[in-house]
Structure formats: C-alpha cells, structure tokens
Computed example of a mutant assay.
Amino acid sequence: MQFSPYGGRMSEISESSTPFPYRAGILYSIHYGIRWTKEGISAWNMHMRGIRRSYSFMTPCVTKNPRSAYLNYRDLDLGVNNKGHISYEQASIWGLKYYGINFRRLVHVKTKVDPGNFF
C-alpha cells in the first residue's frame, strides 16, 4: 500500500475548482498494488484474495457514502466503463465515486467537446 498525503495548500482549493475533488477533509490517498511473477490462474487467485483481504481490512478507514477513489488508482469494485455506448446512469455508478461533485460538469463538457465519443 502506498499512502499519498493530502492537506496543506490542497485543502485551500475548492473541490469544484478542478476535476480533482479530493481537497479539505481528505487526509491521504491509498494505492493498493500487487504484482507477482508466477503464471497461472491459481497464482492469480491467491494474490487477488490477498489484495482483497487488505482492501476489506482497510474499509472502515476510508471514505464512505459513497466510497470514492482517485481516478489514477482505478478501483474496479467501484464499477467500470464498458465498451460501446454507456448511459449517464451507468457512468454515474463509478463516475460520481471518482469525480464527486464535478462529475455532472465533466459529462456536460465531454458531451459538447466529444459528441461522437471518440475519446
């Protein structure tokens, strides 16, 4: 686990000033990572069980209602963007958890700038 501390000057910037909403009141971000060299499904299962145990252990110590995540530290348990057309309702499942109050504004900009969903 990697802990990235927040606070200081970051706390003085409004959460709606930039797409990054994690400002005042957020102490740090946790990046859970795991890697291994042994190939095969049994190795994958063993390591995934281990990282999920760590993740579950930390659950009482992290943001709640909703649980959220920094976009660069993808959290597949929060939801994923499936390929092809995705509705606002579907994207809201994970989008609100990554972007907080900025999600609606980002969807509005994306709709205007990239109506064909090229990016």
Rank of each mutant, 00 (worst) to 15 (best):
Y73Q: 08
M58T: 12
E39W: 12
T59F: 05
R53L: 06
N65G: 11
S56R: 13
V62A: 09
G50A: 14
T59V: 15
T59M: 15
R52A: 05
P66W: 12
R67D: 04
C61M: 15
K64N: 12
R74Y: 07
N45C: 06
R53H: 05
R52V: 03
T63V: 06
I51P: 01
Y73W: 10
R53V: 04
Y70L: 07
R52I: 02
A43E: 02
Y55E: 05
T59C: 08
F57V: 08
P60Y: 07
F57C: 07
I51G: 02
S42Y: 10
F57I: 07
Y70H: 04
Y70T: 06
P60S: 08
Y73N: 05
R49H: 08
R74F: 12
R67M: 11
K64D: 09
R67K: 12
I41H: 05
C61T: 13
R53E: 05
A69S: 13
K64Y: 10
L71G: 01
H47Y: 11
G40R: 02
M48S: 01
A43C: 01
I51M: 00
N65D: 15
E39H: 14
R53Y: 03
A43T: 07
M48I: 00
M46G: 06
N45I: 01
S56I: 08
A43W: 01
I41N: 07
R74N: 04
N72E: 09
P60T: 07
R49I: 00
S42G: 10
I51V: 07
G50D: 02
Y73R: 11
G50I: 03
R74H: 10
M46Q: 14
S68Q: 13
G40Q: 10
W44F: 12
N72G: 05
F57A: 08
P60F: 06
M58K: 08
R52H: 06
V62L: 10
K64E: 12
N45W: 01
P66F: 12
R53P: 02
Y73S: 04
P66Y: 11
T63I: 06
Y55C: 00
W44A: 02
P60W: 04
N45M: 04
C61Y: 15
H47C: 00
I41Y: 03
E39F: 13
H47E: 07
T63C: 13
I41Q: 08
Y70G: 01
S68C: 15
I51K: 00
M48R: 01
I51A: 00
S42N: 12
F57G: 04
P60E: 03
P60A: 05
S54F: 01
C61A: 13
D75L: 05
Y55D: 04
G50Q: 03
W44K: 13
R67P: 04
Y55I: 01
Y55T: 01
M48L: 02
Y73P: 03
C61F: 15
N65I: 10
G50F: 05
E39P: 09
R67Q: 13
E39K: 15
S54K: 02
S54I: 03
A69Y: 10
A69H: 06
S68V: 07
N72T: 08
M58D: 10
R74K: 14
I41K: 09
T59D: 08
C61E: 14
K64M: 08
W44P: 00
S68I: 06
M48T: 01
N72K: 09
S54A: 09
S42F: 10
T59N: 11
